[in-house]
């Protein structure tokens, strides 16, 4: 089975080179920087950092070429994105009060036996809502895939196959951070999940987020105030039972044990692992084989270092 290494943000100190050096591989390195959107092609700094030739798959821009060849696919894609956006809005309408109730109950003082069951039920409601949301998202993706299968345009298929082959022929794949929705969208559009699952991967920040089963957005220090963490989408599912949390130090409110405890219990049995600058988690066969500078949020709201399993 292939190795996956998840890293935190690469600024101000990069640990990508160390991660690459820790792997033994023989062959080309390909990169996915679609999360950088229209800065995708600007890989000079990345190249200089690792000092080994890389080939970027240019998924962000290649998608535009595909859309030009397949206007029906563009329309289908727009329709899917529109549905996902609307679904997210509807999900948020239910999520806000459900999360508020769970937090309130977790802060309540009272007769422990009585309270514990109510707290558990409140968290179950949040979990049920998340599961429902994931099912709805999956249904939208499935509908897209079914309708897309009917669109067979040779030029676009050739372009897709070329990209798939590049991944298949690579010895290592690097997935950079950036805009997480754009990143998963482009990887999904080129149907690279199966190829990626076979390859050693080093992914950082948003790149790590898309490797998981669910993509969870979070920010407790946004300019308009705290927001409830949201399930945005399904991920590639290459890494199981981990919710990667890039920039956790600055984006999470560690002063609130209630918030942190709810975060942990909401996504259990997946473990919520911080990925800050300098963090590293290495996985093989869905087991953590080594980790440094990463913490897992406990159900009590405290954190402890991630350890190899």
């Amino acid at each position: 089975m292939a190795v996956q290494i998840m890293l935190g943000p690469q600024s101000p100190r990069a640990n990508l080179k160390n991660a690459i050096d820790s792997l033994s591989f023989n062959g080309p390195i390909v990169t996915i920087t679609a999360g950088w959107r229209d800065s995708e092609a600007e890989t000079d700094e990345l190249q200089a950092e690792i000092g080994i030739p890389i080939e970027d798959l240019n998924l962000y821009h290649q998608a535009e070429k595909i859309f030009a060849l397949e206007p029906e696919l563009r329309a289908l894609q727009r329709e899917r994105q529109g549905k996902l956006l609307e679904l997210q809005r509807l999900y948020r309408i239910r999520l806000t009060p459900t999360m508020a109730a769970a937090r309130k109950l977790l802060r309540e003082k009272g007769e422990p036996d009585l309270l514990r069951l109510e707290q558990r039920a409140a968290i179950s409601q949040v979990r049920a809502l998340d599961r429902h949301h994931v099912r709805r998202i999956s249904a939208i993706h499935q509908d897209f895939d079914t309708r897309r299968a009917a669109l067979l345009i040779p030029g676009a298929a050739t372009l897709r196959q070329t990209i798939k082959r590049k991944v298949a022929d690579s010895a290592l794949v690097l997935i950079a951070g950036g805009h997480v929705a754009v990143l998963i969208n482009r990887i999904r559009l080129f149907r690279l999940a199966d190829e990626l699952a076979q390859k050693p991967i080093i992914a950082w920040s948003a790149g790590a987020m898309v490797l998981g089963e669910r993509i969870v957005l979070f920010h407790d220090d946004a300019p308009q105030g705290k927001r409830d963490a949201e399930v945005l989408d399904t991920g590639l599912g290459i890494v199981k039972n981990i919710i990667p949390l890039p920039h956790a130090k600055s984006r999470l409110d560690w002063s609130s044990r209630t918030r942190m405890a709810l975060f942990s219990r909401r996504f259990a049995p997946a473990i919520c692992c911080t990925l800050d600058n300098g963090s590293m988690i290495q996985m093989e066969n869905n087991r953590i084989t080594s980790a440094s500078h990463s913490s897992v949020i406990m159900r009590t709201g405290w954190k402890k270092s991630v350890k190899a399993q």
Binding site: G35, G177, G178, H179, V180, A181, S205, L217, P223, H247
Partner: peptide
């Protein structure tokens, strides 16, 4: 200005993890 500008023109902060 921060409150006003970020409310009127919310940035991609929520979606971007560099």
């Amino acid at each position: 200005l921060r409150q006003g500008l970020t409310w009127l023109f919310p940035g991609p902060l929520w979606m971007v993890y560099e």
